[in-house]
């Protein structure tokens, strides 16, 4: 599949679902806030409202330093939201009150939910250097007690063209290959949510387009929702993705600078 075709197919899919949740509800957020730093350096990231359904694709856009990564950290259950948020995970049958988990400092509960429910794609690599591509792909599956491989994983490997690379260590891969393997690793255990933080920023534009297409296709194939942090607003718009845009707030009521993320009109 050429990258143009890949992108147009993704565009068609996401375009058809933009603006509304498509599948069963996965994540529900209201009045979510997170503070970074202290005193005059404090920075507050706010997400007044978000509903994410199974298989949804959401782009988080904003300038560098606007708090996209912080928002991803909160959604990825590694940064604590401020009290008062409604933050519910709906992807596990019974709703899970994530705010309550944070209040109880339930590190283990958050970790298990991360392990089973969320995949992560980092800006660069994110592969463990001492494991082969195959072992990197299998790390979450092993932790969850899933079989080493299954049809879904085989299709994913084929789609990401990772077959010939399975026995290699990450250091022997090109940056593009590493990102493909990283996408494979994030999706190998079929999480309900994939969080990708600027996954293509380290790649040249042509390669970036191809890797992004592969990411979105693979996630669609796995039925995984995607939250994608990127500074490339133009590409997001060209793909017709749902967009959560940062608006910088110089000083809020408490005198804290920050950003408010709200969904742009479709």
């Amino acid at each position: 599949m050429t990258s143009e075709r890949a992108l147009s197919s993704v565009g068609a899919r996401t375009g058809a679902t933009s603006g509304a949740t498509s599948g069963a509800p996965l994540l529900e957020v209201a009045d979510l806030q997170c503070r970074r730093g202290r005193g005059p350096d404090a920075y507050r990231v706010s997400l007044p409202r978000l509903r994410l359904g199974a298989g949804d694709v959401l782009a988080v856009t904003g300038a560098s330093g606007s708090g996209k990564s912080t928002l991803l950290e909160v959604l990825g259950l590694v940064a604590a939201p401020l009290p008062g948020a409604r933050f519910t995970w709906l992807g596990a049958g019974t709703p899970i009150d994530l705010s309550a988990l944070w209040r109880r400092d339930a590190e283990r509960g958050l970790a298990t939910l991360r392990a089973s429910g969320i995949g992560f794609v980092m800006q660069t690599g994110g592969l463990l250097p001492f494991l082969t591509v195959r072992e990197n792909l299998g790390i979450n599956r092993r932790l969850l007690g899933l079989p080493e491989t299954d049809d879904g994983l085989e299709r994913l490997v084929e789609h990401l063209e990772l077959g010939p690379l399975l026995g290699a260590l990450p250091a022997r891969l090109s940056v593009g290959q590493q990102q493909r393997a990283s996408i494979g690793r994030a999706l190998a255990h079929r999480p309900a949510l994939l969080l990708a933080d600027e996954p293509t920023s380290a790649l040249d534009p042509r390669l970036a387009e191809r890797v992004l297409a592969l990411l979105l296709e693979s996630a669609a194939e796995a039925g995984t929702a995607v939250v994608l942090a990127t500074h490339e607003q133009a590409r997001v718009r060209a793909l017709g993705l749902r967009e959560l845009k940062a608006e910088t707030v110089e000083l809020d009521a408490d005198g804290t600078a920050g950003a408010v993320f709200s969904e742009a009109a479709a």
């Binding site: 019974t94 988990l101 298990t112 392990a115 007690g145």
Partner: peptide, 10 residues
């Protein structure tokens, strides 16, 4: 929540 998601015996 009674048990963490994904927490299985073993």
């Amino acid at each position: 929540m009674s048990a963490p998601v994904g927490h299985r015996p073993g």
